[in-house]
Amino acid sequence: MKKKLATLIIVFVSQTVMSQNYQTEFQEYFQANDTINQLKILEKWQSKNPKDAELYTSFFNYYIKKSRQEVLTFTNEEPNGDGFVLKDSLNQTAGFLGNQIYYNQRELKKGFDKIDKGIELYPNRLDMRFGKIYALGEITDWTNFTKEIIKTIEFSAKNNNLWTWTNHEKYDGGEKEFLLSIQSYQIQLYNTGNDDLLKNMRAIANKVLEYYPNHIESLSNISITYLLTGEYDKGIESLLKAVKINPKDFIVLSNIAYAYKLKGNKEKAIEYYEKTYEYGDEQAKQYAKQQLAQLKK
């Protein structure tokens, strides 16, 4: 029995060392953008240890990077990033020459298939889930971006945020850091400036509140999605829930005041700006003071 146990330990250690070697080699070729040797390492790695978690993340990185294509295009609109202005014979702007990014759908699918398999085998690997979400954001697939975030939130309740990271290292962030990451994804949606994505923000925030009912940031996010569309009462309703959780949260208090101001309820706006002044930091106090001076004219 002891002999068998010792053999198993030796085999396990050998496989771990082998995987780390493949991982290191892959990273070197990945940094060098050497796709030929990347694939050679991945195929060799797969033949030796086909269920290695790091193999799935490496395959994912390989296919996602390979799918990214950059082409030079002529457009009538100024491109994002570097570009050249083209002038006509009268020195008028005729167009722009710049780089455009697109993604090869076949290679993308291969990458997502790999990371999906990795998540299936290792559901507690948060780096896999966040990596997939990041890639979906890069290709602006906001529907699946949102779905993947929601699935991750749902699983966080199953594993009590006992996540692991690269090489199965323990993720020490716990619930707090996890929710901060989810908040950053909602900000990413907001920063697109696309009002159609407000419903995506709301869906994520509602899912967070389903499992973390005292998450003030999500209540605030919901309020923003309503305030931006002129649904002031719904926005205020969400903020009032947040202030019940923490009556001294001056950011929430300031947002309530602003919402009432938008609605045209001067009395309530003054009430909440006064509370903002009472509990706020120096910057919040100065802002509340300015707003109160305007409202009391």
Rank of each mutant, 00 (worst) to 15 (best):
L42K: 06
N61A: 09
T152I: 03
E28H: 14
N246Y: 05
K40S: 10
N33T: 08
Y56M: 08
N265T: 11
V17I: 15
N61F: 05
T93R: 10
G111Q: 00
M201V: 02
T229F: 10
A135F: 11
I187T: 12
E271A: 15
Y22R: 07
N246A: 10
E138L: 12
Y287A: 12
T164D: 12
Y273V: 07
F12R: 05
L292Y: 10
K44I: 03
E169C: 00
S218Q: 04
G230N: 07
L209C: 07
R68W: 05
N159G: 02
S89H: 08
G131T: 04
K241G: 05
E271I: 13
N200F: 11
Y287P: 01
N104Q: 10
N33R: 13
L8F: 07
A257R: 06
K109D: 01
G173R: 09
G174E: 11
N265A: 12
E169K: 14
I149T: 08
L126I: 13
E43V: 09
K296L: 05
D233S: 14
S47Y: 10
D196L: 05
K268G: 02
K151R: 06
I204C: 04
L8K: 14
K110A: 01
N265I: 11
E78Y: 09
S223T: 08
Y185I: 03
E274M: 10
L189M: 02
K158H: 02
A293N: 14
T229G: 08
T152Q: 01
L162P: 00
N80A: 13
T57R: 10
I115P: 00
Y171K: 05
Y277K: 15
E274V: 11
G174M: 12
A293I: 13
N33E: 15
T73V: 15
Q294C: 06
I41M: 01
G280A: 11
Q188D: 14
F112A: 00
I41W: 01
F60V: 05
Y272T: 14
K40P: 02
I139A: 05
Q286C: 05
L97R: 08
T166H: 09
Y134A: 12
I149F: 03
K3V: 15
I222Y: 09
N167S: 08
G118E: 00
I245Y: 12
Q294P: 02
D52G: 04
F96I: 02
R202G: 01
A203F: 04
D52V: 03
I256V: 11
K266H: 12
I256K: 04
E77D: 13
G173H: 09
T276D: 05
I236C: 07
